[in-house]
Amino acid sequence: MIELDVTKSHVLHQWKADSPLIACRFSPTGDHCVSTSQDNRLQRWNIADGQKVVLEGHESWVHALTFNKTGDQLISGGCEGRLIWWSILEAQPKAIRSVEAHAGWIRGVEISPDGGMLVSVGNDQVIRLWKTDTGEKLHEWPAHERHIYSAAFHPDGQHLLTGDLLGKICVWKLSDRTLVRTLDAATLYSPNKGQNAEFGGVRSLAISPNGNEVYAAGTHKGSNPFGAVHEPLLLRFNWADGALTKSHVCDGIPGGLLYRAAALNDATLTAVSGGSSGGILLFFNATQEKEFHRAGLPSLARDMDIHPAKGLVATAHFDQHLRISALFA
């Protein structure tokens, strides 16, 4: 068992793709990490030696990635609205299934806790549930009034959360798809009338492993959204009553935006900030308003994933690198 010490985080590996990276996810075993890039491709990286295999099949950028529970399939969601299932463990992964799933961008795909169900969300404001192993569409419903940016299954397996541009988080009961309640994350939304711009949104949703807390990440203080003038913000909610318990602000990161947050364990939350201050890993706990540790990355980051069992963080960077950092000495 690896003894985690995030204050000792450091970059272990960096591997270069052919185009700026957009997103990344670890496989369940942590043996691989898959990234996506601005040339519409995906890359599967072997963590042991950095060997890269390129996957082609999307006609647009891919922001949404998830693995099935057994780790032998990757599901990617593209900005052309297509879901693709990949046989990700094969020497040269193939597209097993391709589904025209959404009108416009897919911004999030997640696997349910039991692995049986896949959710996809995006700009068409519709939530769609799919049977993971067959790709059969199980349910769909118009859910938000604006683009849906993120989704997360609650560990109880009974609820789904979705977050949108306006900072509205909806909690859905999966058995009948009814709206149980909403969480107010409107501080993540920065409309700017002068620029006629709507900016922000719930860029990432995460839930603590014990299910007691919900985290919403993004940006606030968008005084000049077109000029990247905004700051990172992470909101912490109590699952039981939906109350906002903490607003984690991040001082000294002008132009920052939290692209993703993920629970390392029940006590520690990890987030990655991109934007004009570069790439920064941030670590939060429940007692402190500000992060208890931050670690600068060599280049601006746009996405992050963690593999708690291996103590690893993967970050996708504008400088075309996938970086793997260790969260131990």
């Binding site: 002068g194 620029q195 006629n196 000049n224 000029g227």
Partner: peptide
């Protein structure tokens, strides 16, 4: 909030 457009 000003209505005037602001350049980035």
């Amino acid at each position: 909030m000003s209505n005037r457009a602001r350049y980035a």
